[in-house]
Design a protein around this nucleic acid. Structure first.
Lengths: 303, 303
DNA sequence: CTGAAAGCGCTAACAG
DNA sequence: CTGTTAGCGCTTTCAG
């Protein structure tokens, strides 16, 4: 009997097993692929970690209704848990997931008062460091290219950046503030083109994330504005391209690997034990100075 | 009874249904995420198309054993079919999939003599067009940065590029040929740095794909070699970054949307009818001239 | 045309 | 410790 079994390349049917055990071995991940290279990077690390722990990864795109599909999948018992990387306060799907007591973890973006595990980084601290760095180096007209405030990351960075400037008596002139609707190279590019058309253009611009900053850098390049001689540009995230010579972008590095690993650990623990307390983790980030700002030493901010 | 059913937010268990119907509504996609921005782009289009046709997408990374995991999933009945974007001749998983009569489609890379549907583009034609363009414009020392030849895309481009040069009495000097092991910005960068260190450096380099070309462009930038005045660079794929001002890369556009849609249509048809004949489709591609080569009009090659 | 029953392939519990 | 059986939640079939 065993011989025949070994010969015929038999494999147990995973569906039937899943039905008995109420465990599919599949984890869902919700990303927003188009907007931001952060998501492919994060997805890759999450996927690798999940593969390593013996899980399959199913992916949904939050910009094409993926959140609802993910929750359907959880309710229908197709996935054991879901990782949100793009959660927002007004996400109905997230609310439903919590109601259903589905194992859920939020990583990157967080949402206040939602009872689930959350992993983020010190966005406020990073933005404060950039603000302090620009002021220390005598930047006079500081601009800000921000994005949709339903994203906690963008919101925290903008708020902290403004607060830190204000605390030292600086402020952002209204005409030096742009809030783009969609985070993309294109919108960063368009926003910077408008800033540089001003009679009195900025001498430093903080972009709420790297992909905006790359677009902004290319806008300066197109108009012949020299970076960093005439204009400093800083971003946030430290995506791979930020370190490329074409950009050499000053930015704040988010520890994506640590974030992803922690998130998966939390989710798997949650699946094992739904009762345990919910916690929000805030990981530290690193300020990275490159050629898009003058290579001046930074005074590390005590926080 | 119906009232209670409507009130309680009941959802049928998908596992049980899947078990009865032998249809999970899930399709697997195998990509190689780290190496090349082509894969996130392709994955996004595939995922969107699958979502539109009511399917879930599970993702595997071929560089971390994803091919085997995908075939396991198919044998265990967890997915209805699999899309390979990174198939190679020596892939045991692909062979096993064919043995098991699993619904499989190959897109981007193809493999000869494997009985399954395949979707590719005219890589030979695109590379020939670039070769002709470089020769027409009096490039004298033409270099080539190529990659692993187990990828049909790279192999076809290299072969056709060489053949087209040879047909006009040109050839690639041995010192102007580099074959990188892994396709990445970094390896393109390193290869170009070595080419530019030569006593007699190239005046044009064709990179077997865009991400290599971006690295190559940055190598020229770092060494102060002017593009296109001193050096022409061309890539292949037309990934999003190729059109950014920072690069403005001359390249050949692959119709990723058409490729992905066709691949999914073929796979779903295959799942419906395993018996139908296998076919290989070759879609046309577009030559795109940008600032990394002089903006000279091209004579369209008749093929 | 409606309602009960059989069974998909597996695992967990239980009896021998 | 091994072998048998019940049943997971659905769909399909068959009888009423």
């Amino acid at each position: 009997v065993l011989q025949v079994l070994a010969q015929s390349n038999y494999r147990p049917n995973a569906m039937a097993r899943a039905m008995r055990t109420n465990r599919t071995g599949t984890i869902g991940v919700i990303v927003a692929r188009i907007t931001n290279p952060v998501y492919p990077e994060l997805l890759e690390i999450l996927g690798r970690k999940l593969a390593l722990t013996g899980h399959r990864t199913v992916v949904w795109d939050s910009e094409t209704g993926g959140e609802d599909a993910a929750i359907d999948a959880i309710v229908e018992g197709l996935v054991d848990g879901v990782v949100f990387t793009t959660a927002t306060r007004n996400s109905g799907a997230l609310r439903r997931a919590i109601e259903c007591a589905a194992p859920v973890v939020l990583v990157n973006r967080t949402v206040d008062d939602v009872p689930c595990d959350q992993v983020t980084t010190d966005n406020a601290g990073g933005a404060a460091q950039i603000a302090a760095y620009l002021m220390t180096n005598q930047r006079q007209r500081i601009g800000l290219i921000s994005g949709p405030l339903h994203a906690s990351t963008i919101r925290d960075r903008e708020r902290s950046f403004r607060d830190t400037l204000k605390a030292s008596g600086h402020k952002i002139a209204p005409e030096l503030y742009h809030q783009v609707e969609n985070i993309s190279y294109k919108s960063g590019n368009a926003a910077m083109l408008r800033l540089l058309e001003l009679a009195d253009p900025p001498d430093a611009v903080f972009c709420a994330n790297d992909v905006l900053a790359l677009g902004a850098l290319d806008a300066a390049r197109r108009l012949g504005v020299r970076v960093p001689e005439d204009l400093w540009i800083a971003g946030y995230d430290d995506i791979e391209m930020a370190s490329w010579d074409a950009f050499s972008l000053t930015t704040v590095r988010q520890p994506f690997t640590d974030m992803a690993h922690l998130a998966i650990d939390l989710l798997l623990a949650r699946i094992g034990n739904m009762a345990s307390e919910h916690k929000t983790y805030c990981l530290p980030s690193d300020f990275v100075i490159r050629g898009s700002t003058a290579r001046t030493p930074v005074r590390r901010q005590a926080r």
